[in-house]
Each structure stands twice: as structure tokens, then as C-alpha cells.
Amino acid sequence: MDVEPDRVAVTAPPSFDDWVAARGASLLRFAYVVTGSQHAAEDAAQDALARACERWDRVGRTADPDSYVRRMVVNAHISRWRRTRREAPVEVLPGAGEGADHAARVSTADAVLAVCRDLPPRQRAAVVLRFYEDLDYPEIASLLGCSEVTVRSHVHRALAALRSRLSEEDR
């Protein structure tokens, strides 16, 4: 063949399987914080990846397949919630008794998870994208398909809820 294999390897987008192998764990962690449970995270990731798989010739060539697939995870979770109109159960957190530092960390994570659990899916997604993915507000607005003002409002409410919950725990 006349094609130079090395050049093809450099310019071609990754195969779907290669991309999942490299990014799958990160995607599942993201799905876990978006959905709040292992089961829902796997469902959302599978929905998103099945769609991405079908159109990988386009998705793989985009500048940022991660962003695209994560958006689909959020959409899959929101769509599923809209169909069932209920939240997936949030898994029980590990118990305390493993040392003061661990207890403090668990307490913060517990409070964060509890706050997220009480948020509607889009608000939770906004919080996750802001504080887990470190996206800025315009990026989140673009991902969620809403205005930047709405995103700021979601995040503001979540911060207020966390403040309130941590205050309760301090008492």
C-alpha cells in the first residue's frame, strides 16, 4: 500500500473501543456524581455510549469527544428521570468509625451527596459540571441547553443548600 501507516495513526481519530478504554473510567465517575448511584450511572453511560458508538465517525472527529459524550450522559439521565419522574436511589455512604479525618471527609461528602440528591437532575448536573468538571458558566449553559443566568441560579441554590446543611451538622 502507498499509505504511510504512521501518518494514518497520527491523524485518524481514536477508535470507539480505544476511546472507551482510555476514558471510560472517568466517564463512569462523572456519571456517578451526576446520577448519584452506580446503577443509574451505568445506565446513563451505556445510553450515551450506545448513541456515540452509532455515530462515532462524527463524534470521534470532534475536537472534544469527552465533552460530547458527557453531555449525552447528562441528557440520558435527565431523559430517564423525565420518563420515570423519580430519582434513582442514592447509595448508602460508608459508615463512620474509620478515624477522625476519614469521618470529616465522609461528613463533607455526605453533605454534598445529600444536597445533590435533593436537587432536580438539571440543577445537579449544573453543580457537577461546575465543581467536578470545573467548567465555566457559558460552557455549562451550552451543555445543558439553558441560559447562563439559569446555570448561575442553579449553582447559587446548591451552595445555599450546602451552607444550610453544613450549618445543621455543626450544631
Partner: peptide
Amino acid sequence: AFRDGLRQVADRAE
């Protein structure tokens, strides 16, 4: 706190 908490939550994913 949110950032720390979410990372701890994410680490629990299988």
C-alpha cells in the same frame, strides 16, 4: 467543599 465532596463521591464509583 463541593469540589472535595464530589471527588470523594466519584471515587466510590465502580
